[in-house]
């Protein structure tokens, strides 16, 4: 018998918004220590899947289990990076405030944030090369710096599973390289990561497993198994223009 369930197990998950189905019959089993890329066209339900795993959206059918537990219980073991658009960048907080928020989950209702938490936050900022910006308001950062801050916050959370919604959106090439190497390190230390991604060409190098999603699960498996013309065509369907553009990119890259 296994000591605990899989980090993430999704069974026959169906989610709809105002009677329009967004996800339909999705089954998924993510093994510990996986680095999974989630690919699919706009409106394929990628963010919805993340939100449903995090118990922000109630599914119409099926279930999610986190380490074998119901999501209400398991959610505390999940860290996440929000989609860039969902963050209010004018909010009056500094970089270190945001990273410290990652420590809140380690405290009860009335216990105070201590020096230990501050040290941890600085350490995580150092890891993403953002320590020099600790006292800056988050609104004053570039797109790449903003995403690094949220990655530092995720590191400070010290969770076992991470869900990231387009962490590479609007990020410069250097930041993207730094971030992916950090994700790799996290994976090495046994973390499980699921990352929503939008760029087919880089997905192939960045991830070990891919989930192709378009309302239904098209395919899930290791990159060589899943990253085939046929399956990608099935995922991106009618969006041929996008696909051929991607195909050329992939061809050029290889």
């Amino acid at each position: 018998m296994k000591p605990q369930g899989l980090p993430i197990e999704v069974h026959d998950l169906t989610v709809s918004y105002q009677k329009k189905p967004v996800l339909y019959g999705v089954d998924l089993e993510i093994a510990e220590g996986s680095l999974v890329g989630i690919l699919g066209p706009n409106g394929a339900g990628k963010s919805t899947l993340i939100k449903t795993i995090m118990n922000m959206i109630k599914p119409n059918g099926g279930y999610v289990k986190i380490f074998g537990d119901a999501p209400q219980k398991g959610i505390k073991r999940i860290g996440y990076i929000p989609q860039k658009e969902s963050v209010d960048w004018d909010f009056p907080v500094t970089v270190s405030d945001v990273v410290l928020m990652g420590r809140y989950g380690h405290h009860g209702w009335l216990s105070r944030i201590g020096q230990e938490d501050r040290n941890k936050a600085s350490e995580c900022l150092e890891q993403v090369n953002m320590l020099a910006y600790a006292d800056r308001p988050i609104g004053n950062l570039s797109g790449g710096q903003q995403q690094r801050v949220f990655l530092a916050r995720a590191l400070a959370q010290e969770s076992e599973v991470y869900l990231m919604d387009e962490p590479f959106a609007g990020v410069d090439a250097v930041t993207e390289k730094t971030m992916i190497s950090i994700l790799r390190e996290m994976q090495k230390s046994g973390k499980t990561l699921m990352v929503v991604h939008h760029d087919l060409a880089s997905a192939k190098e960045y991830f070990d497993q891919l989930l192709l999603l378009n309302m239904r699960k098209v395919a899930y498996g290791s990159v060589p198994e899943v990253f085939t013309h046929e399956l990608l065509q099935k995922t991106y369907g009618g969006k041929l223009a996008v696909l051929s553009e991607m195909a050329t990119k992939v061809a050029k890259a290889s």
Binding site: M56, I75, I78, G105
Partner: peptide, 16 residues
Amino acid sequence: RQILVTSFDATLAHSI
């Protein structure tokens, strides 16, 4: 702390 995190990032607040 609780009010801050719910105001800034409701999803994070929910997840902790």
